[in-house]
Design a protein around this nucleic acid. Structure first.
Lengths: 331, 331
DNA sequence: TAGGCATTGTGTAACGCTACACAGATACGA
DNA sequence: TCGTATCTGTGTAGCGTTACACAATGCCTA
């Protein structure tokens, strides 16, 4: 900038004003400065220096769970991200995806990212990445939980929604099962019974399991005898594998409550007899396969997270879900 | 940092070393510094200041076309982004999505983003956002084109691939049509005939149209009589609307070459009689509907773009496609 | 015991920018 | 003609950090 100033025969401040408040500079001078800049190959103020000076980066950080890789494979996560991006675009904020899950320096990466605030995609209570985000003293908004002092939480009441859809899908079933997201960060596939929701690390999964249990109780079903198949991701193939194990463990299963439409689809594909099935999200898949499901807008929730992270109030999203009854749970 | 130094009774440099080269500091001192930092609520070196000092941000910028909004709705764009993210995660680079398409200050946003290099998602020759990215003198890698001096291009040979799949789908057809991506940044739906590929602003679309035209010529079909339906996005609903117009314009149409599997699916759904159809991308949709298509890995191309942007050589991707013959173009 | 080396701590000088306060010039109405 | 307001340009200081070169100390070896 100093060089440009010299070349244009003006002071550094004049160059600065030329870029930041063009009206503050006479047209003549402005032209001269821009010409000098072009000649010298100066492309405008350096962003880092500017951020340093301003004390803000005009960038929003997003942490997509401990494994970035999974996030892009989950259509709901992508929709969420689209919502965040939309708000960023409106406000001229950059959207920085912090690369986590590749090594053990996740903490450092989160702390060292040049962002004004963080949005954290659904994670566990003990996620070190979450701890890192909070430790930076920047505003943190967490989607889906966990709740944490000093942070904002955006998300629906998963327990109530799970109860509602659970009652729908379990009604009249003799052998209901659940197709679940991972319970903790290990992300291993397995099948178990009588899982205590309170032992689950992901708040969203915990609440949904609790809701399904509520539904079971409502219907007089013994939760301790309800098998839960845990998938690694929200992926149809995963669901099919786990579903096969469920069928092996409980050949008479006749109802599946799945935590996503993809998982529900996997269940449908592996069905050996008549089966009541519910999904979650009301995605295209649900419409195509006439799935009873829970509708929620991840895009809107993403937008809300971004808005909150940028300091504006957002409406409560706890009730921003809707039970969609379809053929998959009809008699 | 100065405050922490004072509180710990050491110099500023010692604090700096504590964070950046812990081994350079005695365990005692390190502990004292960290304690002081914790007490004062100091969360580590400021990222902006650090970038300024280093002269690099360890962040990769991505520009997803002039309308960020469209990008997240296109599964292929998302896959591309996943590839970029993967490389970023491996190398500890941040991934900054630059918010474009919301106003007319796109240029400024691109120029003012704190990134070391840019990856640009398929765009037009005259995209101001592309011009902005190039004007910053940072390395620029463009996916799919346009080619531009001083930048790197990563992408398959769309023309050759389109010719191959075009021959497949048009063979024996009396009334072939094309379902195309937008031709220019206006993104309007319309149906036209004898479109000159050279007049198309998006290089990818241009090349594919040229390839389809090559195929038509190979088969002795008069290109000027081939209707082209232009969709706004790579979206099934869009495709259905345009397909209805195509059917109205050419009721006897019997072959559709579509530029994505989603568009092909839309064509299938609106088909009134027997129809040869080809898609593009070999996505799940293609497998499910037994679509002849062009397989390519956008994820891998995204990774290649990121790698190239970060300064490493990448293999040529021109031949990284494969014709997948399936039932949709069988006799 | 001197010389060499590793270890640990310290000042200085930028990195590139902009808020702020001020100075000189011009214009205009009283 | 003077005071006042507007327009345009300028210096200073500091945003928070780290590379570098140097100093002080302790330790080992010959």
């Amino acid at each position: 900038m100093t060089d440009v100033a010299r070349a244009a025969g003006v002071s550094t401040m004049t160059v600065s004003y030329t870029y930041n408040r063009p009206a503050r500079v006479s047209p003549d001078t402005r032209a001269r400065v821009l010409r000098a800049a072009a000649t010298l190959g100066y492309a405008g103020p350096d962003p880092s220096a500017r951020s340093l000076r301003y004390g803000a980066t005009r960038t929003l950080g997003v942490v997509l769970g401990e494994h970035l890789t999974y996030a892009f494979d989950d259509p709901q996560a992508v929709r969420f991200l689209a919502g965040v991006a939309e708000v960023c675009a409106e406000r001229g904020y950059g959207l920085l995806i912090v690369p986590t899950g590749a090594g053990d320096d996740d903490h450092d990466r989160v702390v060292a990212a040049a962002v004004d605030a963080y949005v954290v995609w659904t994670t566990t209570d003990d996620d070190p990445v979450l701890a890192a985000a909070c430790s930076t003293r920047r505003p943190v908004v967490i989607h889906g939980g966990p709740e944490r002092a000093g942070t904002t939480m955006v998300g629906i009441d998963n327990r109530a929604a799970a109860r509602a859809v659970g009652v729908e899908v379990f009604a009249g079933a003799r052998r209901p099962v659940v197709l679940s997201f991972p319970l903790d960060r290990n992300r291993e596939m397995f099948v178990g019974s009588g899982i205590d929701p309170d032992s689950v690390a992901y708040p969203v999964t915990r609440d949904r399991l609790a809701g399904y249990r509520d539904a079971a109780r409502d219907l007089g079903i013994d939760w301790s005898r309800v098998p839960v198949g845990v998938c690694r991701t929200s992926d149809e193939d995963d669901a099919r594998t786990v579903m096969r194990h469920l069928v092996a463990a409980a050949p008479d299963l006749d109802a599946v409550a799945a935590m996503s439409d993809q998982l529900a689809l996997g269940a449908l594909r592996e069905a050996t007899g008549p089966l009541r099935v519910s999904g979650w999200d009301d995605s295209d898949v649900a419409r195509q396969h006439d799935l009873t499901t829970v509708a929620q807008s991840l895009r809107e929730q993403g937008a809300a997270c971004a808005t909150a992270a940028l300091g504006d109030p957002v409406p409560d999203h706890r009730d921003a879900w809707r039970l969609v009854r379809r053929g998959s749970t009809a008699a």
